[in-house]
Nucleic acid binder design. Structure first.
Lengths: 207, 207
DNA sequence: ATTTAATTAGAGTATTTACTCTATTTTTTA
DNA sequence: TAAAAAATAGAGTAAATACTCTAATTAAAT
């Protein structure tokens, strides 16, 4: 589990140049030479730091996982409210914007690189378990009223919408901005709506 | 709006070879020469029928749109039941399997080819209107009890889940088979559950 | 039957691109 | 400070690939 330390200045430059170009033009349209050029280094130097293009993409995934962990490790111990959840969903969507090429091309990338697939699937499983835990907390705190048997399907629905809201906007040709992100969060909450008491819902509207 | 007539035998061969290879390896990894070879023709011949690779992909989209139209134009006039909807969702998912590369790479493909983007966004808009109409019918028939104001968000949720269920399975490393498809349909129905009367729900379980 | 048009084959090319190799500079270590 | 190691530059290469061009064949039209 090697993360990018602050000593690897060049490595960071490469990764961020790659993220920028990948987001703008897609992984297929961006050559390693172009990444090197964007990072202000030579192609040879790029290959000193990374074995190949796939290696760069894998490192970006690790970077993304790192940021994602920061997001979900914080709400440990304390009791979360529904408006906390709104914040988490928003941060999650903002991460999707930062690494949008990854979300766009995920399946293709995983098919090309089985190692990437392995890593991502493992993380995905972990994520799901963590989110289930948070959901459970909501139920226990009385914010959500639903049977144990309904939890997984509700969580899965929220998960799918949360992770595909930006794609939906993009495919539909809609703007991605603060208001459209809020709309996505509202969509997820509207699915939970039948399981939230009117009182709690009123509080939520205000936040 | 040029469709593939039965006279264009070669064109059809090329398109189906392309679909097969694209589904297996992704558009990026499949060269035009390989498509020609798979179709059993020469590269020159391929370029006689198609201007370039993008042209092939656009033709595949048209083919897909044609099949999709067949799916949704039939339920016109008669009053649909919820179990009819189950069938439509299933057929829709089966189309996603047939053209899976398209669903996987949609955003990337649209970014590379603005013309493809234009066509797809136009169709997407139409599709949404049609599905809204069907939804409306369900409400009017008394199968669904929901306010006009909730309709769009519920429809959007169903849309997103329906169009991303296979991706979800694939990303999670789960098998795509009859039972997992049924699970996806069940997921969509579970979102509608709070708006369906117990009686209707009972009928649905049976079908 | 003959001309014209449509279709196909297949060799060929210009370009792109992932990646290598070596020489040079910078940094670290002893 | 000298030697060793790490980092960087930049030219270069082999392979892939999208697409072209011409010649040959088949089908259609008159």
């Amino acid at each position: 589990m090697r993360t990018i330390s602050s000593k690897n200045a060049t490595k960071i430059k490469i990764i961020y140049a790659a993220i920028k170009l990948f987001n703008e033009h897609g992984t297929g349209a961006v050559s390693t030479n172009r990444i090197a050029s964007e990072a202000g280094i030579s192609p040879g130097n790029l290959y000193y730091h990374f074995k190949n293009k796939e290696d760069i993409i894998r490192s970006i995934l690790q970077e993304m996982i790192g940021e994602w962990d920061k997001l979900w490790l914080t709400p440990k111990g304390w009791e979360p409210t529904l408006s906390d959840m709104k914040k988490i969903i928003r941060l999650n969507i903002e991460l999707q914007i930062k690494y949008c090429f990854f979300y766009r091309e995920l399946i293709s990338l995983m098919r090309i690189d089985p190692e990437l697939q392995r890593i991502h699937q493992q993380i995905q499983k972990q994520r799901f378990i963590e989110q289930r835990r948070v959901f459970q907390q909501f139920v226990e705190a009385g914010h959500l009223r639903l049977a144990e048997s309904d939890m997984d399907s509700l969580l899965t629905s929220c998960w799918i919408i949360s992770n595909n809201w930006l794609s939906f906007l993009e495919i539909s040709g809609l703007e991605i901005d603060d208001s459209s992100i809020s709309k996505g969060i509202g969509l997820i909450l509207s699915i939970l709506r039948p399981y939230i008491s009117s009182f709690e819902w009123g509080l939520l509207e205000g936040s």
